[in-house]
């Protein structure tokens, strides 16, 4: 179960602004870019010219959207103009990005996100039946939250766990060789089992 900060446009503004500066230096071979219009003097001394300021700003969009979704759980429509302002792009462009990528949700997620792999290697090991079981277990359909906001079900096309199919992910934990019985236990136990996870 993941705890999110309730969305608030003002909070989003300061949060995103605080995350932007380190991203701006990425892609440059020598340090941060100055994005304010008149180039600051040290700029002239660079041996390698930086990205244009607008390019650096623009390339921060997807990392910022990920950070926002990690914080708020979804991308509120009211975040779009805030981000557009910050990176000097139109709202339409930012909206376009948010809606293009499957990862970005535009409504708050449920308490637990259950992802089922529906790609071929998992199909070969019965992911269809698993998906049906998951729908019953979570009392919802793909891309939806259950009525009690407890579960959200999402399809995924491969976790790179195809030799241990079928695969499911519950919140951030990946499970292999899943079946309906194990899934029920995992969904019940998620968050309670320690499992050292990563080293």
């Amino acid at each position: 179960m993941t705890q999110y900060v309730p969305f608030d446009a003002l909070d989003a503004k300061s949060f995103l602004a605080s995350k932007l500066p380190p991203l701006l230096s990425e892609g440059l071979s020598d340090g941060p870019v100055n994005t304010s219009p008149p180039a600051a003097p040290p700029q002239a001394e660079r041996t390698v010219s930086p990205l244009e300021g607008s390019q650096a700003l623009s390339s921060a969009v997807i990392p910022l959207l990920h950070l926002a979704q990690e914080r708020y759980g979804y991308i509120d429509d009211a975040l779009v103009p805030v981000l557009a302002d910050l990176v000097n792009r139109s709202r339409a462009e930012i909206h376009g990005v948010v809606t293009f990528y499957h990862d970005f949700r535009r409504t708050p997620p449920a308490q637990m996100v259950v992802r089922i792999c529906l790609a071929e290697a998992c199909q070969a090991m019965g992911s269809d039946a698993l998906a049906t079981a998951a729908k019953q277990q979570c009392r919802t359909d793909f891309h939806h939250n259950s009525a009690d906001e407890k579960y959200r079900l999402e399809p995924v096309y491969c976790f790179g766990n195809c030799a241990c199919a079928p695969s499911v992910m519950i919140d951030d934990r990946l499970y292999g060789r899943a079946d309906a019985t194990k899934l029920a236990a995992w969904v019940k136990g998620a968050g309670t089992q320690p499992g050292m996870g990563r080293a």
């Binding site: 976790f159 790179g160 766990n161 030799a163 241990c164 695969s167 990946l174 499970y175 292999g176 060789r177 089992q193 499992g195 050292m196 996870g197 990563r198 080293a199």
Partner: peptide
Amino acid sequence: LRDSASLSLAAGDVA
């Protein structure tokens, strides 16, 4: 323990 697939087979719990 650094491999997602091994962890999906409970390598973390074994550790």
